[in-house]
Design a protein around this nucleic acid. Structure first.
Ligand code: SF4
Ligand code: SF4
Lengths: 162, 162
DNA sequence: GCTTTCTCGGATAGCTAGTATCCGTATTAT
DNA sequence: ATAATACGGATACTAGCTATCCGAGAAAGC
């Protein structure tokens, strides 16, 4: 089981955008450069995030991406579902309908126990991700990252926002 | 994000094996036929389950597979980890080490907040799966599946155990 | 109004992990 | 001995994800 690779960049982008002043935007190329990931690929994820109303696009010259909502109203789950999709990890192929035990479809009214376990597990997983907002993550970064690195980042932002 | 396809068959196999009398075994070919899945493929998953000490193999003629432990000591998580692997869904590529913000490796001592969120989510997911045993699932089947189907299944088992 | 800058959206190649299969060998009951 | 069965490696196939490209269109600035 593997989460889409783009989720990581997606979350990082949101955290970075959360540091920008009110309505400012940052173009996709800069975001890619900042994180050291291929720009063309990141663009796809940015579009997905924009489509999911996590990011807002600012078109035209001096445009780019910015958060669509306040950072404390965006959860990690929002980012995950935008990029990785909202489907459950478990997909059953209705095994019980096959083989010699098979019965007519109408016999199977309720969701079976096996299916149910995985559905519940999926729900708690998502609930846990929904618990943390971009603001929470930003706080963590400000606390954990050494001052020197923070200043380096801030300087870079100034230069490229120009 | 997608769970390995074989997990479904794996769980079904365990539930079926839980219905067998004490030390009886069922060959891979029969298990595959019962569930209507390709035998050669199922064999792989069975081996994985045996390697993870979920199933026990009985070699030689009239051999097959049986549960390695009592059904109420086998959790759904055991099956999932045997077939799908125990790795977390989220794998970070250390983005913070790339790009202009990069700093020497020794600066990054603790696990970052982003990483932490996904680790925690993964833990609750696994905890939820560990909550349910094969016995629990078997109970559910006995309760939910119509009597006619149960008898059909029992008859089939008799015939093929011969 | 024209030009420049930048995003949007689709179209498409490349790659990796997972799916599915085969067969020769080892092991055991009869 | 013979038949039945697990084991393990080798391998083809496939879907989904990774990564890239480019033209159309929209906003900003002159
Ligand atoms: S019994 Fe449950 S898990 Fe198995 S095929 Fe049916 S719905 Fe899916
Ligand atoms: S900041 Fe966290 S999630 Fe991002 S690359 Fe580093 S460890 Fe991974």
């Amino acid at each position: 089981m593997r989460l889409s690779d783009g989720v990581e960049s997606g979350v990082h982008v949101c955290v970075l955008l959360a540091t920008l002043p009110n309505g400012a935007a940052l173009p996709a190329a800069k975001l890619a450069e900042y994180h050291g990931v291929p720009a063309a690929y990141l663009a796809k994820h940015l579009q997905a995030l924009a489509g999911a109303d996590v990011l807002r696009t600012v078109k035209g010259a001096r445009g780019g991406y910015r958060l669509a909502r306040p950072a404390d109203e965006i959860t990690v789950l929002d980012v995950v579902e935008a990029i990785d999709g909202g489907e459950s990890a478990f997909r059953c192929s209705e095994i019980r309908r096959r083989g010699p035990l098979a019965m007519p479809a109408r016999e199977y009214t309720k969701v079976c126990g096996i299916h149910h376990v995985f559905t519940r597990a999926d729900e708690v997983w998502r609930a846990e991700l929904a618990r943390t907002t971009i603001t929470d993550l930003l706080m963590g970064v400000l606390r954990d990252v050494p001052r020197a690195a923070l200043e380096k980042g801030a300087r870079w932002l100034q230069d490229s926002a120009r």
